[in-house]
Each structure stands twice: as C-alpha cells, then as structure tokens.
Design a protein around this nucleic acid. Structure first.
Lengths: 190, 190, 190, 190
DNA sequence: CATGAATGAGAATTCATTCAT
DNA sequence: CATGAATGAATTCTCATTCAT
C-alpha cells in the first residue's frame, strides 16, 4: 500500500519534471500533469497542497538526487584538487544523464516560486562541497578571492559545461569534458 | 510624430522589462504593462502583435543595448588578453548597472518563449566577440578546447560574477571584480 | 450492535448540525463531517444516501426533538390562553437551549434543499398545536382572521423572540421573555 | 455610455436576484448569472470584484429599494399608530410585489456572507423607522418592553405576513392584510 | 490612432461520491 | 462493515485579445 502511494507521488513528480522542463511552469496545467501521470487531477492534491508546493517538492527531489549521485563516489580522503575535479565532473555527468533535471534547475533555481526555505533545504545537501572549498582555502590552493566568488565561479562554469553538452551541436566527448573541468579548476586555483 | 510612436513603443518595452523581471512573464498581465506605460491596453497591440512577440522584442532590445555598451570602448587593436578582459568587464558593468536586464536575461535566455530566430538575431550582435576568440586561438593563447566550450566557459563564469554581485550579501568591490574577470581569463588561457 | 449503528448515525447528524449551523451547507464538506463524527467519509453513505438526504434527515430530527420537548409538559386540559403561552414559551426555551438547532432551522426551513415531503413530515409533528388553535377559535378567543394568518403571526413573532435572545447584545431575562410571549398572545387574541 | 454601463451592472444584479432567490447562492454559478444577464462571465468581474461582493451589492440594492418605497408615502406628521400601520403595510406591499427580493432577504439577511459593514449600511436606511419607535415610546403608546424586543416582534410578525401571502395556498386579500398589520400593532401597543 | 469594455477560453482548486481493500 | 484514496465534474476567477467608439 505504502508503495502504491509513493508510486503516485513519484509519478506526479516525474510528469511535472518532464512537462515543466520543456514547457515551463505556467504553460503546464495541472490537468496535463495528471494525464501524464495517469491519475485524476484531484489526486495530485492529495499529495501536494498546491501547484507551488508541487514545484518546490520537485526542486527538493532533484537537488537530493543530484547530491546523492555526486557524493556517492566522493571522499574527503583525497587531495583537494582531485576531490574537486571528481565533484564537478560528477555534477556534469549527472546532468548530462538527466537533462530535464538540468533544464528544470536552470529555470527555477532563481525563480521567486521557490521559497527561501526550500532553497535553504537544498543548500544543506551540499555541505560536503562547502567543506571542500574551506579545506582548499586552508591549504592555500585557491586564488585570493572571496569564498563566495570562488564558489560562484566554479559552479557557474560547471553549469556552462553542461549547457554546452546539452545544447551545442557538437557534443564534447568525455575527455574533452575532463579538460573542461580542469579548466574550471584553473579558474579558482591560485 | 514618429518620435511619439517610438516613445510609446519604448515605454511599453521599459514597463515590460520592469514588471517581468520582478514578477515573471505569466504573472504580468498586459493590462498592468499598459498601466505602467501610461497607455491603453489596446495600444500595445499596435506595436506588438502579441505578448510573446513583445517579450521577444524586449529580448532583442536588451541584447542590443548590451552589445552597444560593450563594444563602445572595444577595439580590435589591442592585445588579446586586454581586449578580452575589457570585454568581460564591460558585460559585468552593464549588468551591474542594469540589474533588471540581467534578471530578465537569466530568466528568458533559455525559455521556450524566445524563438530560435530571436536567439540567432541576438547572437549576431556579438560577432566582434567571436572574432576576438578566433584571434586568440590563432595566437595560441587559449587552451586546446573546442571553441564553443571556451566561449561557454567564459560567459558562464562571467554571468556568475554578475550574479554574485547582484545577489550575494557582501558585494565585491571593483578591484575584486577585476580579479574575478582575470580568473575567468585563467579558465580559458593556455 | 444496533446501538453502535445508532451511535454513528447520531454522531453524523450531530456533527452536521454543528458544522452546518455555523458554516452553512455548502461550506461544509462531507469529509469535515466525517472527521468531526470520528468516522470514515464512506461510512456516512451507509446511513445517508447523499448529502441532501443527510440534511433532510437532520431537519426531521431537529423538528422532532423540538416537538418532543414542547409537548412534554403540554396538556389539552388547560385553558386555551395558558396552553398557548406554555406552548410558545417552550419553543423559546428549546431554541435558547439549542441555538445551533435554531440557526439551522432559520437557514434551511425555507431552503429549496428541504423537500416538500420532508417539510410535510415536519408539520405533522405539530398537530397538537393546530388543535389548540382550532379550540381557541371555537371559543372565539381569537381575532377574526384566517387560521393560517393567526398561525403565521404567532410563530413568526415567537421566532423573533428567540432571535432577539440569541443575537441581541442585551439578552432579555426570563420575565421579559414571558412578557414577550404574552405580547404574542395579544397579536392574535380577540 | 454611462447608461450602458449601468445597464450591465443592473442586469447582473437582476439576474443574480432571480437566480439566487430560487436556487440559493451556492447553487448559482457565475456562468449562469452571466447567461441570464446576457453578458460574458468576465464582464461580471468588471463590476463586482467577487461573487461575495456581488451578493453584498445586491443586499444593499434591495434594502435601498425597499427603503425608498416604504418612506415615499411616509411622513412624521401623523399620529404614531397611523405612521406605524402605514410603515408596516408598505413593507408588506413592497415584498408582495417583489417576492424575489423577499426570498433573497429571508435567506441572506442573517447569512455570514453579508458583511458587518454591509449590514450596517443597510440599517442606516431605516433610521426614520427607528425614530418612529422612539416617538411611540415617548408617547407611552408601547408596552413596557425593551426597545429591541418591540422592534423584533413588529418586524418578525410583519415578515410572517408576507410569508403567508407569498406561500400559503389561500392568499389573504388586502383588507385581511390590513387586519393583520393591525394585529401586529396589538403586539406592541400598550 | 487610441482606448478600454467586453469576451470566453482556460487555469487552479474543491468536494460529493465510489469502490477496492 | 468501515475506510479513505481516487476521481473528475464543476466552480470561481484571470487575462490575452478584439473591436466599437
């Protein structure tokens, strides 16, 4: 029984992800989500109090899956540079495998529809990454720039790599992506 | 008279930018745009066939203004590195001065509402920048990466700098931004 | 077991009375009734075929309780005036003690949701009162007005007394209510 | 132009009155009101911000019309009893001529949908009646009962007369109604 | 040309009722 | 028997677009 419930909730989230990543939130009626999830419209409201809530839940789910994937092979017992490269490459890999999640994140990460609380919950999942940056700083491996800027530059460039892979006409191969990730390291390393 | 017409068109675009950058496209009714532009709702339709068209026009306008600003002080008769730094720093400056345009661009640059044609028209305005990258490549100053990746990395990181300035709690000063821009150069330089 | 069943049925009716008298019929979902009655939604439908049926049943119940209370101390072996005063005063007393039932009656007595059949069944319970009016008429104690008008005036004024007690800021004491009831008698007495 | 606007607003109010008095508020969708008023659904919202607002406006309109009718032939330069009889008879006449307004008032006068402010605005229109009661009291023509009870009894009985006329099978003729109104006077006169 | 009243398709959401467990 | 998850018809309200003035 419990499984069935989770099934429906998951189906709604999956349908929402697929539709919203392509059409956008406002161009995606609840009725369409219901149809794609093979359930009745009213059923969505058993699991999510409102459309806004639904998208916030989806945000959490995507962030959580990303975190799980990214930190699976991640260990703190590695040299900073290697940890860093693996981390970023994992992000790239995850989004390359899950382009809809990337599209969704790009569109909604900064949207006013995602509440502050949701965003904070999402941030908490990436604390290991923050620790890594702190370690790197302590080892004076990084440029003398504000931590926040280091962060922003690194993730901004990483997202750009994903963007390139997903939308450019000639997709870089894995080795080229590796070089790309190393270029990102060059951005912030001293 | 011709001026008057341009006045109204401009007023509509300006109102749209302000409202849409804060509320989003779907949360901004045409009636509100008309009100802010001090004209009647029907009048908007004399200048823009539809709401979608209006937003595409706005996209072009913003890109065009950015290009104008960025290439004003730009010359091809400078060393590559210097040209590059100036170029990126101009982008940062423009968006710092015009946060609404940045917000708008971040939200709609990848939105399905912007047509392919519009996007291409926007790209054409930045051809001088493409030339710069080609020149850099010829001078073997850049990493051995696909041109497109170089491009993406550079602009992705640059946008990240703007983002940081606009939304982080401690805004970097001009010197720090310069260092940031130089870090972006490190991303792509050989 | 039979008691249990009656328990549930009674719980539903009680919950309905409380919720509907305050929120109104359409503002009271079946789910809320079920919750207040501590049963499942589906269970309501074992006892009442539909929401409309439920409210009709409640109407009968309230009328029936009122009749029981009113005719408990009522006897036909009293002078007409006294019988009459006691009758009306009982009605006032009942509703003062059961304001929710009054609210319910005021709202639904004339509602199109109460069927003609239900209304008639409710009327039948007050036949002793009709007899009293006939007796009064025969004893020429009443004004020379149509029986129905006598009736309507008397009960209309009585309901007004209850209304006053329940909703005015200064509630009349028992003695004043007695005087009020006597005033009602003045309305119809010759 | 101004007339046209008033036409539509009036048409909406009239349609609302007719539908709501027979079906009730919640059983009357906005679409039905629009249809009966021969306008589009959206047009209703140009004149009334919400369905609740619409019903409050209707309440004011009905009360206002009643007041206008009732106080047309009313003068303070008449003996109290005569003033009183005329007043009540006018109320009876108005509602007999406008049964839908009566039905509406009976259903919504005490409904939580009518706001306190609306109710107060409605009360203000009947101040001449309040004055009459005060004058009667000063001339010691009334029973020694609280003013509010006097009021409630009189209007409660009057409404009962209307009810009788509208819904009983044998309608009282005008002379009988006069006697009915006089009986109401007996209710409160000393 | 400019206007904004009018329109109705379409959106989110609710809730009476059913029925598998 | 009792339950409450599932359903989708129905409701209120919004808003892009049109068009008479």
């Amino acid at each position: 029984m419990q499984e069935k419930i989770q099934d429906k909730k998951a189906a709604v989230l999956q349908a929402t992800l697929e539709l919203i990543s392509e059409q956008g939130f406002h161009a995606t009626p609840m009725s369409q989500i219901a149809q794609k999830a093979n359930i009745g419209v009213g059923t969505i409201y058993r699991y999510f109090p409102s459309k806004e809530d639904l998208i916030n839940s989806l945000y959490i789910q995507v962030k959580s899956r990303l975190a799980q994937f990214v930190f699976k092979n991640y260990s703190e017992n590695m040299p900073v540079r290697r940890s860093f490269i693996i981390l970023l490459r994992s992000i790239v890999d995850y989004f390359i495998e899950n382009p809809k999640e990337f599209l969704f994140m790009e569109q909604y990460a900064n949207s006013p529809m995602i509440t502050v609380a949701t965003r904070q919950e999402g941030l908490r999942m990436f604390e290991p990454a923050s620790k890594l940056f702190i370690r790197a700083k302590e080892e004076t491996l990084l440029k003398d720039l504000p931590m926040e800027m280091i962060n922003t530059l690194a993730f901004g460039a990483t997202k750009a790599l994903v963007n390139l892979y997903l939308f450019s006409e000639v997709k870089p191969d894995s080795a080229t992506l590796d070089k790309g990730v190393e270029a990102v390291w060059d951005t912030i390393r001293r």
